[in-house]
Write a protein that binds this DNA or RNA. Structure first.
Lengths: 142, 142
DNA sequence: TTGGGTGCAAATTGTTTGCAATTGT
DNA sequence: ACAATTGCAAACAATTTGCACCCAA
């Protein structure tokens, strides 16, 4: 069925943003969409590629992820703890909740908060361009 | 008058959290409170100390800022762009707005957003422990 | 064919650490 | 006196970059 990211669509995506369709780029795109997790670090992607027998340099992974970010194909997040994590930009905007015990990442959306943010920016004479909201949570006791 | 951070109060603050009152620590605390900006990187602090004739190592600045963070004296933020910025934890909780044109940092508070965050976490079976909200804005056109 | 893309190693950047010397209590 | 603290240099971790070679268009 309409698999959002089959080989063909992926090629289109790359061409659309002016990037040559190369093996590394295809494989990285593939890894991002078919890997279990939605949020991967550059290393995560690199290791998964190695595991699948691909011989793609870590530097290339970083370069490609950057290109994807500028192209709007992926979103880069800076959660606590060093590395950046990348996620395919497919299901519209959402924010994140990170469990500080398990590291699990949960996505959520809240129109009300989005609206308030815009209002606050306006109230200070600015236009909201971007924002980053991350909730650090722990499993409810009880 | 009751200057919130005179020499005496600073000494007390340090002792209170079990840190010896040393020259570097006093000077760093001083820089944080009297510098023009409220949000400084470790380098910012380091340079300002050098300018004032103090000979304090960058490593010490990092170490002390970390101790201050664990002690709850300063808060560390990870805005976009590599370095962490530190700010004295004095006027209660607030979030930040960063102008992407001038780099200016504006603080704000919004009880409604705070409440919604707690609700969202709860709704997912979690307790909100911490959060980071940064609005990236640009001066209103008009 | 040819300019963009890649791998590798070396370079950067931000931050932390080991250790001997120094200092606060 | 003695443990905590500092400075310096070296160590680290994440990411970027220079360059000779390679490959998609």
């Amino acid at each position: 069925m309409a698999h959002t990211n089959d080989r063909h669509a992926e090629r289109q995506d790359l061409r659309k943003v002016g990037l040559k369709v190369t093996h590394p780029r295809m494989r990285i795109l593939d890894t991002l969409s078919t890997s279990g997790k939605k949020h991967l670090t550059a290393e995560d992607v690199y290791r998964e590629l190695l595991d699948q027998g691909d011989d793609i340099g870590l530097a290339t992974v970083y370069r490609v992820l950057n290109q994807f970010e500028t192209a709007g194909i992926v979103v880069r997040h800076h959660f606590e703890g060093g590395q950046s994590v990348y996620e395919l930009d497919q299901d519209g905007h959402h924010d994140h909740m990170v469990c500080i015990e398990t590291g699990k990442v949960i996505e959520f959306q809240n129109a009300e908060i989005e609206r308030l943010q815009r209002e606050i920016a306006e109230a200070h004479g600015y236009e909201l361009e971007e924002h980053s909201l991350v909730l650090y949570v722990r499993p409810k006791k009880k």
